[in-house]
């Protein structure tokens, strides 16, 4: 449905989008993730024909966006970052205009308006002037506009910005339901949203693809590392040596010492070591004042991958690659064992 190849955009020698390639099929939801200014909106603007690319191609439903713009644009419903609304129109006037603009047949317009109003729960607001609507409702009008004409591809730029928590959940449900009939691309800088809705995630930073995977795989990758934060009363050197002796502990990092209590972070592997740590310290006569698992989430990978600390990101990527290799390696070994 959507084929993007080597998409590149440069402004005066500065690369805003750098060689992105991906494809989305019907029924799939792809999430663009990245900090503000990562190139998400630029990519979407190029896909919808609002901006032109420096290099690369975008093919929507078999039509190149530059060579057959009208055919390609007919297949797209686009909700830009700021919903393109005319404040002096009522919701109905606006939706009718958008439907006519998209070339929806005159006889189909009332039915189409009814459908999108119901989907986005705008029926009560249909006679209101858009300038009198709250931000959440404006966002819905923008989405309703994108849904008009049942386009095959939906491109939604930060669709949940400005919505309250209840509306965010509604919006996610709506997007999930829409994905059965459409191919959906959405962008966000909120990870929980992307992991809740999308089948595939592309993390973008400074215009470049950092990592692309399913949300499950991304979180699995993170679970391999565990962190336990500890507060123990006693002598610093003894605490450190006791903890280092616990089987499964990779590294112990001293954080601070205050009022006789030593705070440390223990880096472990995948397994939960809280029990062993407790017994080890108890045997050594070192009372635990505080113990807590530092849970890593998608937020952490996001911060690591998109933060200024590029080295750390590279390390993570490398680990990811190593991991795959070892997996293959162990499979090989398993095969041999069978022989």
């Amino acid at each position: 449905m959507i084929e993007v190849k080597n998409l590149t955009k440069s402004y005066d020698g500065h690369l805003a989008v750098d060689d992105l390639s991906f494809s989305v099929k019907q029924g799939e939801i792809l999430g663009f993730l990245g900090p503000n200014g990562a190139g998400k909106s630029t990519t979407m603007n190029m896909m919808t024909g609002y901006l032109s690319m420096t290099d690369g191609t975008v093919v929507i439903d078999g039509h190149d966006i530059l060579e057959e713009p009208e055919e390609a644009k007919k297949a797209i419903g686009y909700l830009p970052e700021i919903p393109p609304l005319y404040n002096d129109m009522t919701v109905n006037e606006y939706l009718k205009f958008a439907a006519e603009l998209k070339g929806v047949k005159k006889s189909d317009i009332p039915e189409q308006l009814n459908k999108v109003r119901n989907l986005t729960k705008l029926t009560e607001m249909q006679e209101r002037l858009i300038k009198h609507l709250s931000k959440g409702y404006k966002q819905r009008v923008g989405l309703a506009q994108a849904l008009l004409g049942s386009p095959k591809v939906l491109i939604l730029d930060e669709p949940t910005v400005g919505l309250d928590p209840g509306q965010i959940i509604e919006m996610r449900e709506l997007i999930k339901n829409l994905a059965t009939e459409h191919a959906v691309i959405l962008s966000s800088h909120i990870l929980s949203e992307v992991s809740a809705v999308c089948d595939h995630v592309m993390i973008i930073n400074k215009g470049k693809l950092v990592v692309a995977d399913s949300p499950e795989n991304l979180s699995k990758h993170l679970e391999r590392q565990g962190e336990v934060s500890l507060g123990v009363k006693g002598e610093k050197s003894r605490i450190l040596s006791t903890l280092n002796a616990v089987i499964g502990v990779n590294r112990v990092e001293f954080e601070k010492e205050s009022e006789g209590i030593v705070y440390v972070t223990v880096y472990t592997g995948k397994e939960d070591l809280r029990e062993s740590i407790f017994y080890a310290l108890a045997t050594a006569g070192l009372p635990i004042f505080e113990m807590r698992v530092v849970s890593k989430s998608l937020e952490d990978i996001f911060v690591t991958l998109t933060g200024d600390d590029a080295k750390e990101a590279e390390k993570l990527m490398a680990e990811n690659a190593d991991n795959e290799e070892t997996k293959e390696g162990s499979e090989d070994a398993a095969d041999k064992e069978e022989e």
């Binding site: 603007n45 919808t48 024909g49 609002y50 713009p69 009208e70 055919e71 644009k73 007919k74 797209i76 686009y78 830009p80 700021i82 393109p84 609304l85 005319y86 404040n87 958008a98 603009l101 998209k102 070339g103 506009q145």
Partner: peptide
């Protein structure tokens, strides 16, 4: 008002 985004991404030249 950024409404040009609606016009220029619609199937109208």
């Amino acid at each position: 008002q950024r409404t040009d985004q609606l016009l220029l991404t619609s199937p109208v030249s």
